[in-house]
Design a protein around this nucleic acid. Structure first.
Lengths: 350, 350
DNA sequence: CAGCACCCTGCAAGCGCTTTCACCCTGTGT
DNA sequence: ACACAGGGTGAAAGCGCTTGCAGGGTGCTG
């Protein structure tokens, strides 16, 4: 079939052991020998069979990435970042999805990553305590992305702070009826991005002396479609909001569309802010909280590699925050009543 | 370490061979034996080590997916579709990117998929003839997505037809100065999505009795940013277009933003149509040509599996077209001069 | 009742590599 | 000149599974 290490050994007049060592840059190979082996390998077009190396070496050289789904902007960017770093380090990355048929139940029941990965990146995995314990119980090194888990290295943005930043921007503009489009805040999940953002939202309202209105908190499924549905609900509320904080840009865009279809001017009649800074947000003028998703993917991959290759246990948990930043564009502005009397804006805010 | 097939064999009082057969559903295992083995395996929480099976079985159980990059909407959707089908069939999917550092040169020089995949899906891979020959020369079964290659099974939308549909929509509305934002039409690549769309664009212009203006054809890099840059160029043209056909929705959105910033009304002063029907296109009101990317991914994965598992050589090339459809929303309309005298629209078109 | 199929099962040889261990051959110190 | 350290190399034992082959039962035919 294709050339094996034995072919190279024969051609270079050395043993397979020496070929293995020479090609992998291990010590204890005479420079002249190495040179010859490398040359022969190149001539024969030899590459080591990763399957065999993995079996013999005991290391899978695979990083598992657990995400709700592929195909959504956030997870695609994440994958991209993880993949870039993993590839350079010689690892493959194997995605596992937890939404779709069976969802996390199926995932936890089958633990499909067993014997397939050296380590696992858990990104927004919707596991409850028991499910998480099952995953962790496999003994496979885990790092998390999105929220911090006790005993698990991870990186995440400060979601509560990001939400406060977003809502603070709105209260700062003078808004008092601010809606939240986000996940269901009472999910029993360990990964609590929606919860954190909800809390940040409430905090920011309180900080501005506002009392939240439960009617203004609706789920949005983190998709444009969900954002649109959410906006429909908000517009049907007894007293609709003058501003919306959507927990993702896609939801924000869906919401804006519905608002405009309903004849509202954005930002004249309704301000909308998102989170992410999606690739196209700049091109629809969406005000948002930027987070660098690809960068987070790269970082979390490094973190996992560090755990796998380093003397990990020596160190304490790594819980590394990732920065976010307010990007003001053209979907937020003062509420209509305040805009009418701009001079008093400052006092109105207070 | 973890439980191996031998542990199961011992516990079930059979040989490892029998365990292997029983667990994989092979024939020639007594029902009672199989039952016992399955029970023991379940009790011991046994799963076969894929690395070992692969080595022994000679099949990698991996599908390679070659794309320019991950992280872009189109490729993320594609990956998602491929992954879904592959997973069900027991295959992993391993992505390879051809853009980024080194580009396709690096890819072709290292042929990183060697000994790692059973088959390859080439999606919009920017290879010239020689490079493609190098990839095909590895003897690994290949299917293509995006364009048809001689001797290679593949699926693709009819890009020329899609472009004709888009441009035909614009000429039908009465536009006569229609720009194209797309790839560089003279790339020497085998994968000719931009070329096909360019040709379709020219065809549609000709069919409407219009002569193309080279100044109205600009590259756009298939990103919102590229679309924006392209639009800047178009607006600076001696005679700017009244309509734009962008070869992707992301470029279309970037272009619209720039046009509106320049004070143009879309679609009043400028019509814009894209291709893809990106998830958020519906929510920015973009008129576009829809293609089902996830569905194409599923289909092409099936096709590859069929090639791998079937008696493939018996059949002729499979070149399977995938449907597209015009979705009219709110970024296209008659040109300003025609809109002013709607009664004569039909004759103006002719 | 002999003879033959046919089932079911186990043995053992790999799959292509990594890694331990032992060995040999230099070069150095005394 | 002799012992010793240590770098360079090869033989061989796996890694955990799949599969070809052979063997032992069982049931059926003539």
């Amino acid at each position: 079939m294709s050339t094996t290490i034995e072919d190279v050994a024969k051609a270079a007049q050395v043993s397979v052991a020496t070929v293995s060592r020479a090609l992998r840059g291990l010590p204890n190979v005479a420079p002249s020998t190495r040179e010859r082996v490398v040359a022969v390998a190149a001539r024969l077009d030899y590459v080591a069979d990763p399957t065999a190396s993995r079996l013999a070496g005991g290391r899978r050289m695979v990083l598992g990435l657990v995400v709700p789904m592929l195909g959504q902007w956030y997870y695609a960017k994440l994958f991209s970042g993880v993949e870039a770093v993993a590839t350079v380090a010689g690892y493959d990355v194997l995605p596992f999805t937890t939404s779709g048929p069976g969802g996390s139940e199926r995932f936890v029941a089958s633990l499909p990553f067993r014997k397939r990965v050296d380590g696992l990146i858990l990104a927004d995995a919707p596991f409850d305590d028991e499910q998480f314990a099952a995953v962790a119980g496999t003994g496979i090194p885990i790092v998390s992305l999105g929220s911090f888990l006790p005993g698990v290295w991870g990186i995440a943005v400060d979601n509560a702070a990001a939400a406060r930043l977003a809502v603070g921007h709105l209260t700062g503009l003078g808004h008092t009826r601010i809606a939240l489009i986000g996940g269901i805040p009472d999910d029993p999940f360990r990964f609590s991005v929606p919860v954190d953002r909800y809390n940040g939202y409430q905090d920011a309202l309180a900080a501005a002396g506002l009392s939240g209105d439960p009617a203004l908190v609706v789920p949005g499924n983190f998709s444009a479609e969900g954002g649109a549905e959410a906006m429909h609900k908000l517009l049907a509320a007894p007293t609709p909001p003058s501003a919306v904080f959507a927990c993702s840009d896609e939801m924000a865009i869906g919401a804006i569309q519905v608002a405009r279809d309903a004849g509202l001017d954005v930002p004249g009649d309704l301000s909308v802010i998102g989170i992410d800074d999606h690739d196209i947000s700049a091109y629809v003028g969406l005000t948002t909280i930027r987070q660098d998703v690809t960068g987070q993917g790269e970082r979390v991959a490094h973190l996992l590699l560090e755990r796998l290759e380093g003397e990990s246990d020596a160190k304490a948990d790594v819980h590394e925050p990732h920065p976010t930043r307010l990007v003001v564009r053209r979907t937020t502005g003062p509420p209509a009543d305040v805009a009418a009397r701009p001079r008093t804006l400052d006092r109105t805010v207070t």
